[in-house]
């Protein structure tokens, strides 16, 4: 039954990844006692991702405003441009695009760093010094991804809707009334939209961090192994984000 072997291998891999997640969760209390390690990682995966997030958020907001205005103006509804940009960003584009960028920028870096630590015996060296690499290396990086993602999603959304994004194009360039732009957003957007955006950001952050540390920790200790782990992190994370987005949206829609 050879055609079943990829399926069983896939399920086995999923089982290993779930067990690994439980090991990380067990290591989180110890990692929380050393906040400096977590802050270092938040800087590494979060602060260093800011440039790409800010620039992408701004451009996506600008493009959305241009495209939205062209359609809305035909119906005399150009003043609703803010709502279109805001809801598109907060409900979908913000969390999803941020997650895809985060997987490419921070997820790949996490997997490569951990894979290289393994290939150069740094993780084995820690174990032989009676230091648990799960608590010292993996858990702080996992927590950092979990914390950084919702913050990055918020910053992305802020940039896309206001600051240099939709507001800059819609209000400053195309002449939509500033008051209408903000007041319509205020009326149409609810607290639940913000809540759902943060939930999506957190779930995506968990998925990407989990996949990245798993791929890095289980990478073959060779240059090819590290390269494969890095690629897998980006591919698997991106697919997981899109699939999870569908599931979460389906639940939130209800």
């Amino acid at each position: 039954m050879n055609f079943l072997s990829p399926l069983t291998e896939g399920l086995r891999g999923l089982g290993r990844a779930v067990l690994f997640l439980f090991t990380i969760l067990a290591g989180i209390p110890a990692a929380l006692l050393r906040p400096r390690l977590i802050l270092q990682q938040i800087y590494s995966v979060g602060v260093l991702s800011l440039i790409i997030i800010v620039i992408s958020g701004s451009f996506i907001g600008m493009v959305l405003a241009l495209q939205g205005y062209r359609t809305l103006v035909n119906f005399g509804a150009a003043s609703s441009l803010g709502v279109l940009v805001a809801l598109s960003i907060v409900r979908e584009l913000g969390p999803v695009v941020t997650a895809l960028l985060f997987a490419g920028r921070a997820g790949s870096a996490l997997a490569a760093e951990i894979g290289l630590m393994k290939a150069t015996d740094q993780l084995s060296g820690m174990e032989m010094m009676a230091v648990d690499p799960i608590k010292r290396v993996i858990a702080p990086r996992f927590i950092a991804g979990l914390v950084a993602m919702p913050l990055l999603v918020s910053i992305f959304s802020l940039m896309a809707i206001g600051v240099a994004g939709g507001h800059a194009i819609g209000v400053e360039l195309l002449g939509v009334d500033d008051g209408s732009y903000w007041s319509q957003i205020n009326q149409a957007m609810h607290g639940t939209d913000i809540r759902d955006m943060l939930i999506k950001g957190t779930v995506f952050g968990l998925a990407i961090s989990w996949i990245a540390v798993y791929q890095g920790y289980h990478a073959a200790p060779t240059s090819e192994g590290v390269s494969r782990a890095t690629t897998s992190t980006v591919v698997v994370s991106s697919l997981a984000v899109l699939a999870l987005d569908f599931v979460l949206t389906a639940f939130m829609f209800h």
């Binding site: 150069t120 015996d121 740094q122 084995s124 060296g125 820690m126 174990e127 032989m128 010094m129 009676a130 230091v131 010292r136």
Partner: peptide, 29 residues
Amino acid sequence: RKRMGLLFQSGALLTDLSVFENVAFPLRE
């Protein structure tokens, strides 16, 4: 393991820490 040390062929030094911090690592831990 605190009573045994293993010296890896590569040295297995933590590359993001200085020589001083590498030696201090087990003491701090």
